[in-house]
Amino acid sequence: MDHTEIATVVQGTVGYLDPEYMQTSQFTEKSDVYSFGVVLMELLTGEKADSFDRPQEKRSLAMHFLNAFKENYLFDVIESGIVKDENKEEVMEVAALASRRLRLTGEERPSMKEVAMELEGMMMMNKHPWVAVTLSLIWRRLNTC
């Protein structure tokens, strides 16, 4: 009765949970940033975060996506309808934004406010029609999640 803390259990799908939380059981505001990175990555790839239908090395979409980003075969994992010759640079920017959200430690991730500012800045800086269409598609998908 004289306790002021409330004990709660974090629930969620394994593919979306912050790896740092999985190790430390400490849930922070940066844990949500990781989950957002997973959603953004799913929007770019058209794939689910975790799937037992994929081979072992591709089962975790986050690991597969980060490896593709690092090893320069990212466009092989991006959903085909998103990438066009005219917007490859912008798609790479969004992929980089997603990869920064997927960093293993929360300290290395930006805040959600910084994420929103980056996305809005990308939309405002790019006035070309194909950029607007690509970012609008991603933005609309985010708003419907």
Score class of each variant (00 low, 15 high):
Met1Arg: 06
Thr8Cys: 15
Val10Asn: 00
Thr13Gly: 00
Val14Gln: 07
Val14Leu: 12
Glu20Leu: 02
Tyr21Gly: 06
Tyr21Ala: 06
Tyr21Gln: 07
Tyr21Pro: 00
Gln26Arg: 12
Phe27Lys: 03
Phe27Arg: 05
Thr28Lys: 08
Val33Lys: 03
Val33Leu: 01
Tyr34Lys: 02
Ser35Cys: 09
Ser35Lys: 02
Phe36Met: 09
Phe36Asn: 06
Gly37Lys: 03
Gly37Met: 04
Met41Trp: 05
Glu42Met: 05
Glu47Thr: 02
Lys48Gln: 09
Phe52Asn: 14
Asp53Asn: 14
Arg54Ala: 05
Arg54Ser: 05
Pro55Trp: 05
Gln56Phe: 04
Lys58Asp: 06
Lys58Leu: 09
Arg59Met: 15
Ser60Trp: 04
Ala62Gln: 05
Phe65Lys: 03
Asn67Trp: 01
Ala68His: 06
Phe69Met: 07
Phe69Gln: 07
Glu71Ile: 00
Asn72Ser: 11
Tyr73Leu: 00
Tyr73Asn: 12
Leu74Tyr: 05
Leu74Asp: 03
Val77Ser: 08
Ile78Arg: 00
Ser80Ala: 14
Ser80Tyr: 04
Ile82Ala: 14
Val83Ala: 14
Val83Gln: 07
Lys84Tyr: 09
Lys84Met: 14
Lys84Pro: 04
Glu86Tyr: 10
Asn87Phe: 01
Asn87Asp: 13
Asn87Lys: 07
Asn87Gln: 10
Glu90Ser: 10
Glu90Cys: 11
Val91Gly: 14
Val91Asn: 09
Met92Thr: 10
Glu93Asn: 13
Val94Asn: 06
Ala95Arg: 05
Ala98Glu: 02
Leu102His: 04
Leu102Lys: 01
Arg103Asp: 11
Arg103Trp: 00
Thr105Trp: 10
Gly106Asn: 08
Gly106Thr: 04
Met112Glu: 08
Lys113Val: 15
Lys113Glu: 15
Val115Met: 14
Ala116Lys: 01
Glu118Asp: 14
Leu119Gln: 07
Gly121Pro: 08
Met123Lys: 15
Met125Asp: 11
Met125Pro: 02
Lys127Glu: 14
Lys127Asp: 15
His128Asn: 14
Pro129Val: 13
Val131Trp: 00
Ala132Asn: 08
Ala132Val: 13
Leu135Glu: 00
Ser136Asn: 10
Leu137His: 10
Leu142Glu: 02
